[in-house]
């Protein structure tokens, strides 16, 4: 568990520099040096007057389960949102009107964001969930042999889980 600085909130009072026992908070990038940061120490988190430092966990609990009857309907909506994104993309592709293409871009972006949220609530909220892990395994099995599939990265991800 290491500390992270939210640069949008940091008011540069430098109390974290005063209190950090390893100098991890003092870097040229403005971000904390995660390698120097002591696991779970949190001295800087508690000392920061603007509440700009938080801890990022290295382990996560399994997410809450979603009932099948709910998941089924969330999947159906996610499928519809994907179809809407595809249609908007197709309409834009077939048009040279900048205003229509702008509207289509909005529909594509918004539909994707809504779909991602539906996936999140149906068991795919974090990559550490069983559902996400099984999905990646199935993707490798189904598409791993196809050109352009990031086989090495996906295998590295799955190996990191075992």
């Amino acid at each position: 568990m290491h500390a992270v600085r939210n640069l949008r909130l940091c008011t540069k009072d430098c109390v974290c520099l005063f209190i950090c026992p390893t100098g991890a908070t003092n870097t040229e990038t403005g971000q904390i040096d995660f390698d120097k940061c002591l696991d779970g120490c949190r001295l800087c988190v508690d000392a920061c007057p603007s509440g700009a430092i938080y801890l990022v966990s290295s382990t996560y609990p399994k997410p809450q389960t979603t009932e099948d009857a709910v998941a089924e309907r969330l999947f159906a909506l996610a499928n519809s949102k994907a179809a809407q994104e595809d249609l908007a993309r197709s309409i834009a592709h077939g048009s040279d009107d900048p205003a229509l293409r702008q509207i289509c871009k909005v529909v594509e972006m918004s539909s994707r964001i809504i779909a991602e949220d539906l996936w999140r609530e149906s068991g795919y909220i974090i990559a550490q969930s069983d559902a996400a892990e099984q999905l990646v395994e199935a993707m490798l099995a189904e598409y791993g042999a196809e050109e352009g599939f990031p086989v090495e990265a996906v295998q590295a991800f799955l190996n990191g889980r075992r």
Binding site: A82, A83, E85, D117, W119, R120, A132
Partner: peptide, 11 residues
């Protein structure tokens, strides 16, 4: 669909 697969991945 391709877009569904992409959306799970971007999430």
């Amino acid at each position: 669909t391709w877009t569904e697969l992409a959306a799970v991945c971007t999430n």
